[in-house]
Design a binder for these strands. Structure first.
Length: 492
RNA sequence: CGGGAUGUAGCGCAGUCCGGUAGCGCACCUGGUUUGGGACCAGGGGGUCCCAGGUUCGAAUCCUGGUAUCCCGACCA
């Protein structure tokens, strides 16, 4: 018997690592920091993709695809941006292999050195803005609203499945606008799209805000973000939306003729969410029994498990299960029937619990007699015998909606219980050390103070809330005047 | 990338100190008895012992170098 999942209370990070593997979401690959996303895990990602993609399309965006490789020289065009990424990129230096003369295998052909080295994209601003230069001449070409689904590579030193991998999947939106206000509106609109997605599909409440200078994306004027809280009291940045000002337009010389016939630099945005969302999903809702999936992202919402003694019973149950499946399908509910013949139903129950399937329906001979089923919900681990009447499929539909609400409310309550206000540095340090969670505290606005607090407590400013400035006070660290409370936390 | 630990069958592990050619539990396959929350009996299959060198008559075991994973730190979405 393999060992069960570690308890969250005993070793949270071990619990996470093993859950990812045991729930069949992903596993490590032979290459450091890279992961294989398994079908069950990828199915969840696909659901995230399709929901987000629909939202992008609804707000006027189109998908396109730009290349994986970026000429090294492109990263020399914009100093600020390069600062942030140049250090940890994979670099392609050669284009051919050959057999080693001593027969020891394949080696890089030293004669096949590239004239210009290629960078595996850590993000695509440079290649996209160099392309936009050719696409944009007049204000009539604007706005340009483009998204791409892609993989990117950042050579991180310390990796964890989904949370920080060397290669990860994401979407990156890159838009160009005629006016500053339009670009800012776009940045904020996408922030709302992300927040809606995380709350409505992932059942996870978010905080919206702006990053401080030191946490800002290299090359951005402002970085907006959504921050979520995990069960261990650490914050996780779930998405970012950047107002780029005219920085990339300057670096790549992207100009347009405005309505007055004058040449002007284009205003830009970029925004992204990644497979990191999978990490947030796992850590936010799951328990010591395994994954808890919100119904809208579960690969299937309902699993039907037959309980049987012989083939005749199985056949009869299967017939009934198919009826149920069709009824639920009509409501848009995805159902899996698990007809594998097994000695005991118990391990199937455990498997779907581990995988977080929202609703399990068990049907046995007694149910066939009574025209009932046993319905179990994953989030609360409750089960009930329900009659198979006209109300049944509506009841399941309602149940799924309730599961979504319940796990959302639970996450919201957890966040409320773990959100604190600190008015002195001692209080602040005590909360960080003993409680965790989000802390609203006054800050003098300087990077120096932010850095000191980080050094001393490991807590960083997750964001400056959007309603910043309502209450003035004194910085908890320096005692200098503060225009408002910002949100601190230890973060992933 | 620095410090520490680990790597033996699909999973979890023993064997390593003290070198002698690999074992246990679960899973898997076959037959039978079973089946409303992780069944039982009998039989069976499966391993380049992370990789590459070295020492040795002989290496999972000793030495050297790599590599991957986990933890701490720095870095980071």
């Amino acid at each position: 018997m393999s060992k069960g999942l570690p308890k969250r209370s005993e070793d949270y990070s071990q619990w996470y690592n093993e859950l990812v593997k045991k729930a069949d979401l992903a596993e490590n690959s032979p290459v450091r920091g890279c992961m294989v996303i398994k079908p069950f895990g990828f199915s969840i990602w696909e659901k995230m993709q399709s929901a987000l993609d629909a939202k992008f399309k609804d707000t006027g965006h189109e998908n396109a695809y730009f290349p994986l490789f970026i000429p090294k020289s492109y990263l020399s065009k914009e100093a600020d941006h390069v600062e942030g990424f140049a250090k940890e990129c994979a670099v392609v230096t050669h284009y051919r292999l050959k057999n080693a003369e001593d027969g020891s295998g394949v080696i890089v052909d030293p004669e096949a050195k590239l004239e210009e080295e290629l960078i595996v994209r850590p993000t695509s601003e440079t290649v996209i803005w160099s392309t936009y230069k050719n696409w944009i001449q007049s204000y009539r070409d604007l706005p340009l609203l483009i998204n791409q689904w892609a993989n990117v590579v950042r050579w991180e030193m310390r990796t964890r499945l989904f949370l920080r991998t060397t290669e990860f999947l994401w979407q990156e939106g890159h838009t160009a606008h005629a006016t500053k206000q339009e670009a800012i509106d776009e940045t904020r609109q996408i922030l709302d799209v992300y927040a809606d997605f995380v709350e409505q599909h992932m059942a996870l409440p978010v905080l919206k805000g702006v990053k401080t200078e030191s946490e800002r994306f290299a090359g951005a004027v402002d970085t907006y973000c959504i921050e979520t809280l995990m069960q261990d009291g650490k914050a996780l940045q779930a998405g970012t939306s950047h107002f780029l000002g005219q920085n990339f337009a300057k670096a790549f010389d992207v100009k347009f003729t405005n309505q007055e016939g004058k040449l002007d630099l284009v205003w830009g945005t970029s925004w992204g969410v990644s497979t990191r969302l999978m990490g947030a999903l796992i850590m936010a809702h799951s328990d010591d029994n395994g994954l808890v999936l919100p119904p809208r992202l579960a690969p299937f919402q309902v699993v039907i498990v037959p309980i049987f003694k012989n083939d005749e019973q199985l056949e009869a149950i299967e017939k009934k299960a198919n009826e149920i499946k069709e009824n639920l399908k009509a409501k848009g509910i995805v159902v899996k029937y698990d007809g594998r013949k097994t000695h005991k139903p118990g391990w199937k129950f455990a498997e779907y619990e581990l995988k977080g399937i929202p609703v399990r329906i068990a049907i046995g001979p007694k149910d066939l007699e009574n025209n009932t089923v046993e319905v179990a919900r994953r989030d609360l681990l409750e089960k009930n015998i329900i009659p198979l009447d006209d109300q049944f499929s509506t009841g399941i539909e309602t149940l799924l909606a309730d599961i979504h609400q319940t796990i959302y409310k639970k996450a919201e309550q957890f966040r409320a219980d773990n959100t604190h206000h600190a008015d002195s540095y001692n209080e602040f340090k005590d909360i960080i050390k003993n409680k965790g969670g989000f802390i609203y505290a006054h800050w003098d606005g300087t990077p120096e103070t932010e850095e000191k607090i980080k050094e001393e407590t490991k807590a960083t400013i997750r964001c400056i809330p959007l309603d910043y400035g309502g209450e003035t006070g004194k910085c908890i660290y320096s005692g200098n005047p503060s225009k408002g409370r910002v949100i601190f936390a230890k973060a992933y």
